[in-house]
Simulated assay, not measured.
Amino acid sequence: MPTYKLYYFNAKGNAEITRLVFAAAGVEYEDIRFKDRDDWLNNYKHLSPTGQCPFLEVDGKKIGQSLAIARLVAREHGLYGESNMDGAMIDQVLYTLDDLTKPLIDWHFEKDEAKKAEKEKKLAEETLPESMQRLDKLLKGNGGKGYFAGNKLSIADLAVFNQCSELVVKFPKCMDKCKELPAFIDRIKALPKIADWLAKRPQTDF
């Protein structure tokens, strides 16, 4: 079994999907969390192959980019489907989630309060409900199997759970028109290995 070290801030952020994959796979790793920005800049940034975080160390080899990291761990531990078609369906979900990144970041870091309110309104009333319905359709499109790809848990399911369970806290109505997604989120949350991780992970604001 490889030795894994995951480097990121003391936050869920872009590292949480990899942590969830590790949890679902039952794989041990060292969860290295920077104390603050200065700790990252002074003690860890020079170790990152891309100068960004998160990054993962596997038996001494370092890999950057959050999706590349999560995909590697998922593939290594049976959470990337059982066929090329499963893999394509998983990628479809991951890219659908990635489409949400820019509008969410734009809203989060907007400093003009009036513009931020406008962006939040658009997210709440248009962008997020449309994206959630798209995911709902993809879930249903897998033949009612309860997963986004194939017949078993994959990184796609974990990524949707990770994103949606956070979004619904700030935007509680974003899944109101979804038929499958709310129950799916509850089911993933209740999986023993996921529930165990959620109970013991450090409590952070984001």
Rank of each mutant, 00 (worst) to 15 (best):
K12V: 01
K12N: 10
K12P: 10
A15Q: 01
I17N: 13
T18H: 05
L20R: 02
F22N: 01
F22P: 01
A23K: 07
A23I: 05
A24K: 03
A25M: 07
A25C: 09
G26V: 07
Y29G: 06
E30F: 13
D31S: 07
I32W: 03
R33E: 02
R33W: 08
R33P: 15
F34H: 09
D36H: 11
D36E: 11
D38H: 11
D38V: 09
W40K: 13
L41R: 11
L41P: 00
N42V: 00
N42C: 08
N42G: 03
Y44D: 09
Y44N: 10
H46E: 07
L47S: 08
L47Y: 04
T50V: 03
G51S: 06
Q52T: 06
Q52F: 03
C53N: 02
P54T: 03
L56R: 08
L56T: 02
D59Q: 08
D59I: 03
D59L: 11
G60H: 09
G60E: 10
G60V: 06
K61W: 00
K61R: 09
I63D: 01
I63R: 05
G64P: 11
Q65N: 12
S66D: 12
A68G: 15
I69Y: 02
A70D: 01
A70C: 04
R71M: 14
L72E: 05
L72D: 00
V73H: 02
V73P: 07
V73F: 03
A74D: 05
A74E: 03
R75Q: 14
E76N: 12
G78A: 13
Y80D: 08
E82T: 07
S83L: 04
N84D: 14
N84F: 11
M85A: 13
D86P: 00
G87R: 14
G87S: 14
A88Y: 13
A88E: 12
A88K: 09
I90F: 09
Q92H: 02
V93D: 10
V93C: 06
V93L: 09
L94H: 04
Y95M: 10
D98W: 04
D99I: 07
D99Q: 12
D99W: 14
P103E: 05
I105N: 04
D106T: 12
H108G: 03
E110A: 15
D112T: 04
E113T: 15
A114C: 00
K115L: 11
K116N: 15
K116Q: 15
K116W: 08
K116G: 14
E118L: 13
K119L: 14
K121M: 13
K121N: 11
K122D: 11
K122Y: 11
K122S: 12
T127M: 03
T127Y: 04
T127F: 03
L128V: 05
P129C: 10
P129M: 07
E130P: 00
E130A: 13
Q133F: 01
Q133W: 00
R134N: 12
D136S: 10
K137S: 15
K140Y: 06
